[in-house]
Nucleic acid binder design. Structure first.
Lengths: 162, 162
DNA sequence: TCATAATAGTTGCATTTGCAACTAAATCAA
DNA sequence: TTGATTTAGTTGCAAATGCAACTATTATGA
């Protein structure tokens, strides 16, 4: 077997280069959806992520939120502070361990979640509109495999079938 | 036909939500590859993009570079300034139109390009290692279609078959 | 029981980013 | 011509980001 550098002079066109393509696509998508959150609900992407995970499973601590959203702790801390101030989430500190605090959506928070959710899903559908269901599944499968390689540590992307 | 909101209560799990998945994957990939550029060559992502397009087609103006890399003009301006300072690219202002300047890789720039290129392609291969050639093609096709929808304006992502 | 280490969350700060406003040069229109 | 527009590129600045350092609290172990 030849050592390495088996790959002599492949071309490198930026717009065929996967990291570049992912970055451009992801930026375009994030921008667009962030504009919508911002314009219609005055909510940032980070705030939205927190609302989204709490909408699914209420009563998480900051650290748990950070793990699920892949945000770093300072980001969660600040976004949560602002949401608390706006009475969208509440924080109740744990009596047993006073370092911790449980975060929950308030009623207002639930309303906002209920309002954003269909808009978010609609945008996702729009994005996927030109893909068949099989292609869409394929896409998710491929993203999962790429994610395993890009961040092997993460336990996420587990095959969450149903 | 029912009006809209045909889609009653779909679930919204963040880690099955396409914009989120793209963002997380793209960040992980960008981070990793940016670290490599930085550590081994002291080059930022933006600088790399400029080097990459000039490596393919030398003698572009800032505006052309901006269009091809989807960077904004200030970003190109600053990254190019720093590359010029480090003698990685040269700028020769156009005699006919003195607003313009052609950017070219210097010899040193070419060396750097030649050094980074295989590393970049190797990382891309690593990322794609678990995908078959057909899957890889499929992935690119899907990304192309998503990109059309996410940024319909862009003329890029043209079917650059061969 | 007291010093050390670990954990939850916050604050501060330096860097990056994105965008608006600007300068310089060329074009267009009267 | 020359005044108004357009284009190329730069500068400045406000906001977002990422990370290190910090406080407060709990756990560990001699």
């Amino acid at each position: 077997m030849t050592k390495s550098a088996d790959h002599p002079q492949e071309t490198l066109r930026l717009d065929g280069f996967l990291p570049y393509r992912l970055s451009v696509l992801s930026n375009a998508v994030s921008r667009k959806i962030a504009d919508m959150y911002e314009r219609e609900f005055d909510i940032s992407i980070w705030q939205w992520r927190i609302i989204a995970v709490l909408g699914e499973s209420d009563g998480l601590t900051s650290t748990e939120v950070a793990n699920r959203t892949l945000m770093d702790k300072p980001a969660v801390s600040r976004a949560a502070a602002s949401l608390t101030e706006r009475n969208i989430i509440s924080r109740k500190s744990d009596d047993a361990d006073r370092r911790k605090a449980e975060l929950r959506l308030t009623d207002k928070g639930r309303e906002i979640y209920a309002a954003i959710k269909p808009r978010a899903l609609a945008y996702e559908r729009e994005l996927l509109a030109s893909l068949s269901p099989e292609e869409s599944r394929m896409l998710h499968g491929l993203l999962t495999r790429l994610s395993h390689i890009a961040s092997p540590d993460r336990n996420l992307w587990s095959e969450t079938g149903e």
